[in-house]
Structures are given as C-alpha cells and as structure tokens.
C-alpha cells in the first residue's frame, strides 16, 4: 500500500518541518519546498495527493500563482491555503475569483484541524 502524499509549499522551513514531522507520524508521506520557483517541479515529480501552501511567499500573491498552476496540472488535487496573513490581510486575494483552493486555514492551526481537513479531502484512509 502506498502512503498518501502531501506537498507543503511554504517559505518558512520550520513551518514545513513541524508539519512534516506531525503528518509523517500520522502516516503520510510528506515533502516540502521553500522556493516558489521549484514548487511546480516538485509537484510534477512527487505527484502529491494534496498540497498545502502559503500565499505570501517572496511576492505577495506568489502562492496564488502556484495554486493556479497546480490546478492546471492536476485539477483534482485538493489545495489548502495555509497562511499566517490570515483573512485580515489576505482578504483581497481570498475573495477574488482566481482562488482555486479547496480550503483556507489560518496559520498556526491546531494540527488536528489540519488532520480533519486531510481526512475530508483524502477520504479518511492514509493509504491508496
């Protein structure tokens, strides 16, 4: 059985690490990327079942461009925007039509909240 694969794109490597350790302990295969420029490359090679990404990376809406690209490559891959800019700052982006993400979670989130979301979008089982 294959583990379900999660890709985390965030410019903060510590955020990736904390999440990665937790999700791996919960039985997911996790890869992280801090550079927006390499994110798509990794998405193509890793072929994740779900992607978690920050919206504000080097450029304010870089995350949203990545989200759009990911959705073009694989429209069925669920996306969770995980950002500390929260709705207060990110509202401009979050309300525009270009958002293709399935969910929007304020950073930092309770790990169980994220786990529930993964279950919701990946159908409960951690394995294919």
């Amino acid at each position: 059985m294959m583990k379900k694969k999660i890709l985390i794109i965030d410019d903060d490597s510590d955020i990736i690490e904390a999440l990665k350790l937790f999700l791996e302990a919960k039985g997911y295969e996790v890869k992280g990327e801090t550079k927006p420029s390499k994110a798509i490359e990794l998405f193509n090679s890793f072929k994740p079942d779900l992607a978690i990404l920050d919206v504000m990376m080097d450029e304010p809406d870089e995350g949203f461009f990545i989200a759009q690209k990911i959705k073009k490559i694989n429209p069925s891959c669920p996306l969770i925007i995980y950002s500390s800019i929260s709705k207060a700052l990110g509202y401009d982006f979050a309300k525009s039509e270009v958002i293709v993400a399935e969910d929007f979670v304020d950073k930092p989130a309770d790990p169980n909240v994220l786990l529930d979301l993964l279950n919701k979008y990946l159908g409960g089982s951690n394995y294919d």
Binding site: D12, D14, I15, A18, F22, K26, S84, I85, L89, P108
Partner: peptide, 22 residues
C-alpha cells in the same frame, strides 16, 4: 505585527507538534 507573527507561528507549530502525542 506580521513579522512578529511569523516566528510565533513557528513556535506554536512546534509546540503543537510536541503536544500532539507523537
């Protein structure tokens, strides 16, 4: 505030990890 919140988020993320029971 956003700059302060970023490291705080990391701290909370690690604390969550430590308290998650894994």
């Amino acid at each position: 505030v956003h700059e302060v919140k970023s490291p705080l988020s990391v701290i909370v993320s690690y604390l969550n990890l430590l308290l998650s029971g894994i």
